[in-house]
């Protein structure tokens, strides 16, 4: 009976097909590649600038005064370019890239009309939202690793590599330093979890990808400005960017975990709050686009 044949037995694993498709779609977008290209260029620029600046034997950053963290150490050890590049991109470039991808996640699909076809496929609203968030988190990790790998390659090319001195003054081996660098990259990626959730929530509010991206990036700038105003120190601990630069504590010996755990806790809180808000909004929304 043809009717009986039409009954399909679905495997729970098939549901992951959407995640795979989502990753492919995200990373085949020209915009995603352009963002990653810009992120890869930052360490190269920093590396070349430090190299030119210190060509006469002076140390970078005017003796360690200004500039991003660790910049004065780069000439001694190229591995420090990884830390410098992450410290330079974390306040703005990385979260902006994440904001663009997260803001566009659902609003872009609504804008193109593809959202209605995904939903009648049927992707399922909760499943689609989780898939989108998972893909944005993968983008957070990939973006951070792109910065780190580009910085490591540039550092290895332009500067010597070797044992390094931690902030506490102790010396650790190069391989130990590489492990710390990877850990720092993971912490930086995890620092973007909150922005990603915020962007996804904004993305559920509108059917215009551009509006969602602009709003998310605008919120990011606002938070960064508020974080700079001393009179508003009461709200500072609740800003998702407040503990971002705590990743430097991984370069202490022993590691200071206080701010690191506070950062991860705050990111988890943002993910929970804005993730729930996005879910509440997206699962009850009329899809008219």
């Amino acid at each position: 009976m043809s009717r009986a044949e039409a009954v399909r037995r679905a495997s729970p694993l098939w549901t992951l097909g959407l995640f795979r498709s989502e990753l492919l779609t995200t990373f085949r977008r020209w915009r995603t590649l352009a963002l990653l290209g810009v992120l890869a260029a930052v360490p190269v620029l920093v590396g070349i600038a430090v190299r030119i600046e210190t060509g006469d034997g002076s140390s970078a950053g005017g003796g360690g005064g200004g500039g991003p963290a660790f910049i004065s150490q780069i000439t001694n050890n190229g591995l420090f370019l990884v830390f410098t590049a992450l410290a330079a991109t974390l306040p703005f470039f990385l979260p902006m890239a994440v904001g663009v991808v997260a803001g566009d996640a659902l609003a872009g699909e609504a804008n193109a009309g593809t959202l209605r076809y995904l939903l009648v496929a049927p992707a399922g609203r909760t499943r689609l939202l989780f898939t989108k968030y998972a893909a944005v988190l993968v983008f957070c990790l990939v973006a951070t690793l792109v910065v780190a790998v580009s910085a490591l390659a540039t550092g290895a090319l332009l500067f010597p590599l070797g044992d390094l001195t931690t902030i506490s003054g102790t010396r650790i081996g190069f391989s130990e330093g590489l492990v710390r660098a990877l850990l720092i990259a993971l912490v930086v990626a995890a620092s973007l979890v909150g922005v990603a959730a915020l962007g996804l929530f904004v993305s559920t509010l509108t059917s215009s990808g551009i509006a969602a991206m602009a709003t998310t990036v605008g919120l990011l700038i606002t938070v960064q400005i508020v974080g700079q105003i001393p009179q508003l120190h009461a709200v500072h601990p609740y800003l998702f960017s407040h503990y971002w630069l705590s990743f430097a504590d991984l370069m202490r010996e022993p590691v200071h975990w206080d701010d690191l755990t506070k950062n991860l806790g705050l990111q988890a809180l943002y993910a929970a709050v804005f993730g729930s808000a996005a879910w509440a909004r997206f699962t009850s929304k009329d899809i008219t686009a």
Binding site: W14, A121, R127
Partner: peptide
């Protein structure tokens, strides 16, 4: 391929 993978009842082996 993308629309088909959005359907959780679609068999990826025959996609």
């Amino acid at each position: 391929l993308r629309y088909d993978s959005a359907d959780p009842t679609a068999d990826p082996r025959t996609r």
